[in-house]
Design a protein around this nucleic acid. Structure first.
Lengths: 214, 214
DNA sequence: ACCTGAACACCGTTCAAGT
DNA sequence: ACCTGAACACCGTTCAAGT
C-alpha cells in the first residue's frame, strides 16, 4: 500500500492508522480493511515494499566485495525509510515472500566455500548482523516533547565520573552521540557511517577466519 | 513497573495498555498515569528493567572469553523476556541511564588493545551485532490466527524451484525454520543456538583480525 | 469487487475533584 | 503524594447495506 508508506515516511510509525490511511486516500476507514484485512498485514506489506527496493550486488564479484556492497545497499534502503525500520525489526513475517535475497546471499557464501552447518551459520550471521546492526542504528527517537531526556543524557556525558566509569571517562569524547547507548539522536539524523564500515570489516574478516579453520 | 512486565511477559506486547496495567493493580487507569506520565515512558522503564537483569562477565577473564560470556548472558536475559524484545528494539531511549554495561564493555575492548576510532568501532560492532542479532532472532510471531501464513511458508519451502533458487534448493533441508527469512517460528519457541554461537565466533575472530592489522 | 455508514469495545490522555 | 471519576478524541474491527 503506497499511501501507508507515504504516511509512515512523512509522519512516523506512531501516526499510521487504518483511518489515517483511509483519509490519505479520501475513502472510508472500512474501505481500507477491504483491501488489507488487518493492520498487521498492512505493516508487513509496507516492510516488504521497502525491502523490495533493495538492489542486490552482482553475483560476479568476489564474495568479500559482494558482502560489502550488500551491506551498504541494505543500509541505504533502510536509511531511505527510517520510520519503517522499527516496524520491520519487530516482526518475523517480513521478507518471507520471495526467496531472492536469501538465494543470492546463499550463493555468495557457498561460492566463498561455506557448506552444511557453516553455510547456515554464515548466512544467519550476515542477516542477523547487518539487519540487526542497522535496526539498532535506526531505533526510533522519543517523541518530540521529550528533550528533557536528551538534555539529561548530554549533561551526564559531559561529566562522567572517572571513579565510576574510568574507561568511559577517558574515551567519552570519541563516543558522545556516536556510540550505542550514548546517543540522543537516532541514525536517521546522526548516521554512524564509520562504525558501520568497521563492523562490516569485522564481519567479513570473521567469516574469512571461519573459512580458514575449515 | 513490575505489573507491566508481568502483563507483557504473559500476554504479549500487543496486550499491554495503561488500562490493562491499572486493572492488574486493581486501580483506576489514571492512577497509573500519575506514576509514569506516558505509555512511552512505561515501555522504556520495562525495557530497562529487563536489561537490569543482565549479569556482566568478570573483568578478570581474557577479552575473548569476556565477549563470549557477555553475548551468552545477554541472550539469556532477552530470551527470558522475549515479548519485551520487539519493544526494546524499536526505541533509542533504552539503557541510557547508567553506563555500567558500556563501561565494562569498553574496558574489555580497551584491555584487548583497541584505542581511538577502533575502540568506538569495536564497541559499536559488539553492541550492534549482539543486540541486533538477538533482536532479529526474537522478532514477534504473527498473531495466533495467521497460521495460513505459516502453512504457506512451510509448503513453499517444501518445493523450492531449483531453476529459480538453485543454491537454496540444495541446502533447504539445513535451513528450513532454522534460518532468518525462512522461519515460521520465532526464537522464543525455536532458538537458533548453534547459529548464535557461530555468529559470536565470527564477531570475535573478526575483532581479532582488526587488532592484528593495527 | 468495492465502498458506505453505523456501531462496538477499547485506547491514551486531560482535567477537576477528592483524601 | 496519590487516587477517583467523567470526559475527549482516537483507534481497529464487525456487520449490514448499497452499487
Amino acid at each position: 500500500m503506497r499511501a501507508a508508506l507515504r504516511v509512515i515516511d512523512t509522519e512516523g510509525d506512531r501516526a499510521l492508522s487504518m483511518r489515517r490511511v483511509a483519509a490519505e486516500l479520501g475513502v472510508y476507514p472500512t474501505a481500507v480493511q477491504h483491501h488489507v484485512n488487518t493492520k498487521e498485514q498492512l505493516l508487513v506489506a509496507v516492510s516488504d515494499a521497502v525491502l523490495d527496493e533493495m538492489v542486490m550486488p552482482s553475483p560476479d564479484v568476489d564474495w568479500v566485495e559482494w558482502l560489502e556492497v550488500f551491506s551498504a545497499q541494505l543500509r541505504a534502503v533502510l536509511h531511505a525509510h527510517p520510520n519503517v525500520v522499527p516496524v520491520m525489526a519487530a516482526r518475523l513475517r517480513v521478507a518471507t515472500g520471495a526467496f531472492t535475497l536469501s538465494e543470492q546471499l546463499l550463493a555468495a557464501l557457498a561460492g566463498a566455500g561455506f557448506t552444511g552447518a557453516a553455510l547456515r551459520g554464515a548466512y544467519n550471521s550476515v542477516i542477523g548482523f547487518v539487519f540487526g546492526w542497522i535496526f539498532t542504528e535506526l531505533a526510533a527517537e522519543p517523541a518530540a516533547d521529550e528533550d528533557a531526556w536528551r538534555q539529561d543524557l548530554r549533561s551526564r556525558l559531559e561529566r562522567v565520573d572517572p571513579a565510576e566509569a574510568p574507561t568511559l571517562a577517558v574515551h567519552v569524547d570519541d563516543l558522545r552521540n556516536r556510540a550505542f547507548m550514548m546517543r540522543w539522536m537516532s541514525g536517521q539524523s546522526n548516521p554512524l557511517d564509520d562504525s558501520f564500515e568497521f563492523a562490516v570489516r569485522v564481519m567479513v574478516s570473521g567469516l574469512q577466519a571461519q573459512l580458514d579453520r575449515q
